[in-house]
């Protein structure tokens, strides 16, 4: 620690751990503050919610009306000698306050579905996760090996990549109707949309990543007697693994973004169904809660995968993973010899 005041803005330089943590928290606090300000302070509030209806025949207690309509109606009422309405300034219904959404985050999970046989919220969430999971897994089972082969052998690269390159420009949703016609109305067409949205990008991304493997490692292995099969499994794949893992995290994010499209294919299901349903009932706090849940699942998964990745690929920074530290203790520290 130096006594000198650390600068906040330094071209291309990092910041201290403490500041990084602070900024990370701030990046979430800031939007929350803006949201709270708009919700709780009289900055916007374009509508009026009626508290007492008075003598009006047009509105009831609890209705939300434009400020202009409210004033106009009240003028009419007073000129005719009737009792005016009482109201409070509010934001539109589609802009719930933080505490309402926070409440909905809990209540959405424990509120019984409106109609018998409809899924609970947690069932909808599980359904969404399942669709993304299978779409991504099936895509990866084929896409990862294919991508690696394309990256290693020109033969596969030239045979497969031109078409994949072409196909990836079809937006996955355009296959919705086809997928339903072929695969029926259950989850299969939804998984197929996630698959189509992920697979073609995946092959290209992984092929490119594989091509970045330092070829001198392969040559070194050759001069140690390694034959092609061994080069693939013991050199190329371990060498590409950290970057490939990173790619997979990004691709999983893309798969998530296809979820909402996939879920409205055929019969609407999952979180999208829930969101549409709640919007119909004008329960916008629940809509926000559902959107937040999507975000939490996405960010949470990525953070967990990131932490696992740092363990798995500790060797990149010359660190030992937690497990190897557990098994062999007291290792020497590197000094110049």
């Amino acid at each position: 620690m130096s006594n000198k005041e650390e600068k906040w803005f330094r071209f291309g330089k990092g910041l201290s751990q403490k500041r990084v943590r602070g900024l990370t928290i701030a990046s979430f606090i800031l939007p929350l503050l803006i949201w709270s300000a708009i919700s709780y302070l009289p900055v916007w509030k374009p509508e009026v919610q009626i508290v007492e209806a008075g003598d009006t025949i047009y509105f009831e207690e609890g209705d939300r009306v434009d400020r202009e309509t409210f004033q106009l109606e009240n003028e009419n009422l007073t000129t005719e000698g009737d009792l005016p309405m009482l109201g409070k300034r509010v934001n539109p219904v589609y802009f719930p306050a933080p505490h309402e959404v926070a409440g909905a985050l809990y209540s959405a999970f424990v509120t019984e579905p409106r109609r018998e046989g409809d899924p609970w919220f947690h069932e909808s969430v599980a359904h969404s996760v399942r669709v993304v999971f299978w779409g991504f897994i099936i895509s990866s089972i084929i896409g990862v090996p294919l991508g690696i082969m394309c990256g290693v052998f020109s033969f596969f690269s030239k045979l497969i990549e031109p078409f994949v390159e072409f196909f990836r420009y079809f937006p996955a949703p355009v296959f919705g109707a086809l997928a339903v016609a072929i695969l029926g109305i259950n989850d299969a067409p939804k998984v197929a949309i996630i698959f189509i949205g992920t697979f073609f990008q995946q092959v290209l991304v992984i092929a490119n990543t594989t091509r970045t493997v330092d070829f001198s490692l392969v040559e070194a292995a050759q001069t140690l007697g390694a034959k092609p099969g061994c080069l693939l499994f013991r050199v190329v794949i371990p060498a590409v693994l950290p970057k490939l893992y990173m790619d997979m995290r990004i691709l999983l994010g893309w798969a998530w973004t296809y979820l909402i499209v996939a879920e409205v294919v055929g019969t609407s299901t999952g979180i999208s169904w829930f969101i549409n349903q709640q919007a119909k009932y004008r329960m916008f706090d629940n809509v926000y809660a559902a959107i937040l849940v999507l975000g939490f699942i996405g960010l949470g998964t990525d953070m967990i995968l990131g932490a696992i990745g740092r363990e798995l690929f500790a060797w990149e920074e010359g660190k030992r993973s937690f497990f190897s530290r557990m098994f062999n203790k007291n290792k020497p520290v590197a000094v110049e010899a």
Binding site: E219, A220, T223, W315
Partner: peptide
Amino acid sequence: RGMVFQKYTLFPWL
């Protein structure tokens, strides 16, 4: 024919 290169070619994951 063992070879040592100018570039560092140890396998970093081992």
